[in-house]
């Protein structure tokens, strides 16, 4: 106690200084409207930043609780699945039929998360290197997408890495269609820009407008139908004057690519094998 009193007495001028300055700030902000507004706004900014940090901290500290809640939900969902399986088997569905139904009707596809570790942009034939390879279940001719659309196709794999043939490669050609219609063509890159590609060989009688979405048509085993590719920027005459050529603004920004997903379409193995017989 004595020490505390001694400390307070020794530093009393500091406390008086702070007290007087606080009184000054209060008077200053109360009697000077412009300065008061600036102080109010600055205090709001500081308080906002403080709340953001405290909110982030709170979220982080609650992760354990949220994890536990998600775990419980997962257990409950698994139980529901098991119950539904039993009910389907009770009404005469065999385990094989059920499995086939899940594979085909529900069209289950696995996504393997990967990171781009190298990416060339300004070559004629660009390539992307991913940090996942054969040990992660990646094999040749798997499709690669990101949250904005399709990126390319796995071209080569090693144990821990894989090489993607992106849309920005002169050898790339992907079957796409105009969304909500069945008019399709082959999407290729003409090296004009990193953000544009061309959808060639679209029939003359196609109904297409600027701004229409371009999606995959599912004609190849690599990409399922309906994956976004981009949107129509310009409608041009084809090189043969018998078809349309669409200038497509790509959804994927290849200059800003980090996290991608490799589509593990194991269910299409049978189809792929069949199609390879006639190639």
């Amino acid at each position: 106690m004595k020490n505390l009193i001694r400390f307070l007495a020794k530093n009393s001028h500091w406390f008086v200084f702070l007290l007087l300055e606080i009184i000054g700030i209060i008077l200053y902000s109360q009697f000077n409207s412009r300065q008061g507004a600036v102080i109010f706004s600055s205090v709001n900014n500081v308080a906002g930043a403080f709340y953001q940090v405290s909110s982030s901290l709170g979220t982080y500290l609650n992760l354990k609780k949220e994890n536990s809640a998600l775990h419980d939900e997962n257990v409950e969902l698994n139980m529901q699945i098991a119950q539904l399986r039993e009910q389907l088997q009770d009404v005469g569905w065999s385990a094989d039929t059920l499995s086939k139904c899940i594979d085909t009707t529900l069209n289950v596809r696995y996504l393997i998360k990967a990171r781009v570790i190298n990416n060339t942009l300004f070559r004629k034939d660009n390539f992307i290197t991913l940090d996942k390879g054969e040990t992660d279940g990646i094999s040749k001719e798997m499709g690669v997408i990101d949250s904005n659309g399709i990126v390319g196709v796995i071209f080569m794999t090693s144990k821990h890495y894989s090489l993607v043939l992106p849309l920005l490669n002169s050898q790339s050609s992907i079957n796409c269609k105009v969304a909500m219609t069945e008019f399709f063509g082959a999407l290729s890159w003409n090296r004009e820009s990193l953000r544009y590609a061309c959808l060639n060989d679209l029939p003359r009688h196609s109904i297409v407008e600027k701004g229409d979405k371009i999606v995959t048509n599912g004609f190849s085993a690599v990409f399922p139908a309906g994956l976004p590719v981009g949107e129509v920027e310009e409608i041009l005459d084809g090189d043969d004057n018998q078809s349309y050529k669409l200038k497509v603004k790509l959804g994927v920004d290849f200059a800003n690519l980090r996290n991608v997903y490799v589509i593990d379409a194991r269910i299409d193995e049978e189809r792929r094998n069949l199609e390879s017989l006639v190639k």
């Binding site: 007087l20 300055e21 000054g24 008077l27 200053y28 109360q30 009697f31 000077n32």
Partner: peptide, 22 residues
């Protein structure tokens, strides 16, 4: 503080001279 407040009263800027003076 007193001097600053006194000047502030004439300048119609209460708190400015006071804080600077302290």
């Amino acid at each position: 503080t007193l001097l600053g407040l006194f000047v502030d009263m004439f300048h119609d800027s209460i708190g400015v001279n006071m804080m600077a003076m302290v």
